[in-house]
Design a protein around this nucleic acid. Structure first.
Length: 463
DNA sequence: GGCCCTTTGAAGTGA
DNA sequence: TCACTTCAAAGGGCC
């Protein structure tokens, strides 16, 4: 029953879509081992059936993929019951407050070496079934995605002590004792950039070459995936399969909508999963900080960020969409016409429930063309001018949909505590912190929605 | 070849 | 505390 736990953590390893579980396209989120590393990179040489790019067979969504992973009982996520990461014994800020409760962790993150390999992986639903590892492992290879985790019987002490000078400080810096990089570790092929000023004095004292070598040796531990990222990984293949869209940007837009349309319970599952991810990550890499990865990627153009923020907060949506500012306009990939047939999902998201015609009429800005998540494009154009136009359509439509699907929710009604309501039906900012939802909602996220951007469901209102 | 785009959320930074 | 920035995944598009 217990598949090779290492599987899901291997590089970009597509979890065999052809396996028993078709939603296994999700790979271990933290792993990013470059080709040529110890672990065989299955990305390039991977057979088609193992490739993420291969449209995943439509899986019946009767049971949520995450269901087997976490016991998401209704009670657990009931509005009356605070999310675990918001529960009293959890630091709402860190989300990793209490010492890992054995009963909570053990099912997913075995602490006992002896138990390794016998306990379902936290992302067990991602693990290929039938015990077929997706990645070849050397004999004796670690059987747990977090080998280091299995080294200590007491994770609590591991976490609390924080003695490890560098990450987990295995035999080889940054590498698990097994010799196989941890899923979250990226071999320092990361582009080399000037040593950050934050380096310790000792490091700074070294010659640039030494610094560079140090950098190379230092593994790149990736950030744990957040709830949305986990959701994306799971749903991407499905969306891709349903649509002809291939551009991730477009897919992500769809996924973003679907995300908002998820019920709170559904989202809560991902939040919970993400929380566990972070928890495990922090346990494995007590000294790791997101800051460590700063500069690993090429900086995005700040201009873009600024212009986005400005357009979101000051410019009316329509203008904002078209306002190219200094960069490309906020591109809306989803044209109004070509629908992207999206089979009904189990959760009955808005994707499957197009707005009513009256809804579209509800917004003065709503153009004749209406499209919902159900009306996704089969193809899309990425021409900037077209994108801008599409942005208008989409913005208007979504706002109309939001108005229609959440009548009276904009302010007057108390946030939906009694029943799940598709988040996409109303600005997220208007929701009070739902049980398992991050309590962090910044003013800069909420205000634009509340004040200046009643139509801002299309373009990102946050950030 | 490598950055851009696009999404949301977490976390870091600076004022 | 707030606003802003960066990174996480993904892959086609573009230079």
């Amino acid at each position: 029953m217990i598949p090779d736990l290492s599987s899901p953590y291997l590089p970009n390893g597509p979890l065999s879509p052809g396996g028993a579980r078709t939603y296994l396209q999700m790979k271990w989120p933290l792993l990013d081992v470059p080709s040529g590393s110890t672990v065989k990179d299955t990305r390039s040489p991977s057979p088609a059936h193992l490739s993420n790019k291969v449209p995943v067979v439509q899986h019946p969504h009767h049971m949520h993929p995450l269901t087997p992973l976490i016991t998401y009982s209704n009670d657990h996520f009931s509005p009356a019951s605070p999310p675990t990461h918001l529960s009293p014994d959890i630091d709402p800020k860190t989300g990793i407050p209490r010492p890992p409760h054995p009963s909570e962790l053990s099912p997913y993150y075995p602490l006992s070496p002896g138990a390794v390999g016998q306990i379902p992986h936290p992302l067990g639903w991602l693990v290929p079934q039938q015990g077929q590892p997706m990645y070849s492992l050397p004999p004796g290879g670690f059987r747990h995605p977090y080998p280091a985790l299995a080294m200590n019987a007491s994770m609590s002490s591991l976490v609390s002590s924080r003695f490890s000078p560098h990450m987990m400080a295995p035999a080889h810096p940054g590498l698990p004792t097994s010799g196989i990089p941890h899923p979250a570790i990226v071999s320092p092929i990361v582009k080399q950039e000037p040593a950050p000023p934050s380096l310790s004095p000792a490091v700074n004292a070294k010659s640039p070459v030494s610094v560079k070598k140090e950098e190379e040796k230092k593994p790149h531990v990736k950030k744990p995936l957040n709830a949305f990222m986990l959701y994306m990984k799971e749903m991407r293949a499905k969306v891709v399969a349903e649509c002809t869209l291939k551009e991730s940007a477009a897919i992500n837009q769809i996924l973003g909508r679907k995300w908002h349309n998820l019920s709170r319970e559904e989202q809560a599952k991902y939040y919970e999963l993400a929380r566990k991810e972070r928890q495990l990550h922090s346990q494995l890499y007590p000294t790791w900080s997101a800051r460590d990865n700063y500069g690993k990627k090429k900086k995005r153009k700040r201009e873009k960020q600024l212009s986005q923020t400005q357009s979101q907060q000051q410019v009316p949506e329509a203008e904002g969409a078209l306002a190219s500012k200094s960069k490309k306009p906020c591109v809306q990939y989803l044209p109004p016409e070509k629908p992207c047939d999206s089979p009904a999902s189990s959760h009955g998201s808005m994707l499957d429930s197009p707005a009513t015609p009256s809804a579209a009429l509800a917004s003065p800005a709503a153009p004749a063309a209406t499209h919902s998540e159900q009306a996704q494009p089969l193809s899309l154009t990425t021409k900037p001018e077209t994108r801008a136009q599409l942005a208008l359509h989409s913005a208007a439509f979504l706002s109309a949909k939001a108005a229609a699907t959440s009548p009276g929710q904009m302010g007057s009604q108390p946030p939906l505590l009694s029943r799940p309501l598709p988040l996409g039906s109303m600005p997220t900012a208007l929701l009070t912190s739902p049980p398992s939802f991050p309590a962090t909602l910044h003013a800069h996220q909420a205000l634009p929605v509340l004040q200046a951007q009643p139509l801002s469901l299309v373009t990102k209102s946050a950030h």
